[in-house]
Design a binder for these strands. Structure first.
Lengths: 199, 199
DNA sequence: ACCTGAACACCGTTCAAGT
DNA sequence: ACCTGAACACCGTTCAAGT
């Protein structure tokens, strides 16, 4: 039984766990291939056997965080579904404040997560009675608002993190907007849109 | 007249201009103190005479970009004021896509820019007839939505940048929400807010 | 006053080598 | 199959020295 004693072998999940802990506890800059080898008790270059380079390692971190996202089910009212979705997404991101910038800027990882996480949101918004064109805008609004909110919270010093009442007030406003739009567009034609500037 | 010939002396603005050009043309990672010295035709360490360290240099870049923000004036309708503000802010940020992450995560610089740029937005939202408590939420919604939108656009490959119609559709929705909320809150008491989750 | 150049303590990554 | 260790080409920053 070789390897029965001594440390267990490196695996991708052990690497990702250690890297995430490093980022959470000491910041993104503290994640160094060499330091990572150190906390894993291994030669710094051993990680390269399991991971192509640092960028793909960061991709794995983002995947791991997004994997924890599962929007709550069993809610009837579409308004509460939208709110619950937004809260779950916010909490997911704020669980790793030092990683949020990576989280929202890694195109591929965000797209993959969206494929899993977005449909419930879109379904909830769709149940409001909005016409399809507005469903897209409303979903985008929720997603982008959460991104913006989380970005602000994550870059604030931990002591100054908000209590979430502002977040709830904005959700109220978004829901009100969807309701109002759903009503007006079922009775009157879509209102004219202001023309865009050149660029 | 010493220095009449030879290159002109380094200044902070020359340094910031060169650094911004480097970031715009070659990405954030290309901004290196050594490379910056190179494009300025100077010893890499000369920059340190004018700037404490790289972090404060980045702060100067953020300041320089935000300095270009002046929301359009002379608009009557609050709805168009809100839209114009959001477009101006978006365009400002997307003019330097490689810097947006820094742009929105440098607390102090954002706060300073906000002090100049925010009041017109808050005034516009205030003119909608919303009660003060909702004015804050509505302003936050616009700011955070633009942040989220820009973050998504900036991390998309240039070819895939949107045409802005999605942005306009969301602005419509936000304005609709503000209008609806202004109407209902002038006639009925504020609707009950869903209670918050533990964390 | 303003810039230079050597030096220090780091990086990410490669590659041949060990077991 | 999995890990090591030397090596390479970079980093940011300090500090004494030049003009």
């Amino acid at each position: 039984m070789p390897r029965a004693k001594g440390r267990e072998p490196l695996t991708l999940v052990r690497i990702v766990d250690a890297a995430l802990a490093l980022v959470d506890e000491r910041g993104l800059d503290a994640l160094t291939m060499r330091r990572l080898g150190g906390v894993l008790g291994v030669d710094p270059m051993a990680v390269y056997y399991h991971v192509a380079d640092k960028r793909t390692l960061l991709g794995h971190l983002v995947d791991a965080v997004f994997a924890d996202l599962d929007p709550p089910a069993g809610i009837e009212d579409w308004r509460e579904q939208v709110r619950a979705w937004a809260r779950a997404y916010r909490d997911l991101a704020l669980a790793h404040p030092n990683l949020v910038l990576q989280l929202f800027s890694y195109r591929e990882a965000v797209a993959a997560a969206a494929a899993r996480a977005d449909p419930p949101l879109r379904a909830a918004v769709g149940a409001s009675g909005l016409p399809p064109a507005d469903v897209e805008a409303a979903g985008d609004l929720v997603v982008d608002y959460v991104h913006g909110y989380v970005l602000g919270e994550a870059s604030a010093p931990p002591a100054a993190r908000g209590d979430g009442t502002g977040f709830e007030a904005v959700l109220d406003l978004i829901v009100t907007g969807i309701e109002a739009r759903a009503l007006t567009s079922s009775t009157t034609p879509r209102r004219r849109r202001a023309k865009q500037p050149a660029r």
